[in-house]
């Protein structure tokens, strides 16, 4: 699957993260830019979770920009799920 829309999820608040998704051209694969307040301690684990979630949704041709302010793992997963959902389905409200 590939994103249809540019999407955003999360906030800049402490214990949260903000995720931007942009669709890329076909066969571009995944481009991930990750910044974190706890990069030294949790950078590797964050990258792992991001790739796991993208695998779960079989996402490709996607550009992700992530700014993390020390979010716990379930929060990271929730925000990724929200961003991915918003990038493939139009938001209803």
């Amino acid at each position: 699957m590939k994103p249809k829309y540019a999407a955003q999820a999360g906030t800049f608040e402490s214990s949260d993260l903000i995720i931007l998704i942009e669709p890329l051209e076909d066969n571009s694969g995944r481009k991930i830019e990750l910044e974190s307040a706890v990069m030294l301690q949790y950078g590797d684990s964050l990258k792992k979770i991001v790739n796991e979630m993208l695998d779960l949704y079989e996402m490709t041709d996607i550009h992700l920009i992530i700014k993390d302010k020390g979010a716990l793992e379930p929060v990271v997963r929730a925000r990724l799920e929200t961003a991915i959902e918003r990038s493939v389905n139009p938001q209803i409200f």
Binding site: V38, L40, Q41, Y42, G43, D44, S45, L72, E73
Partner: peptide, 9 residues
Amino acid sequence: GITGVAKEI
């Protein structure tokens, strides 16, 4: 368990 084990500096 809550935070995940931090990588050592």
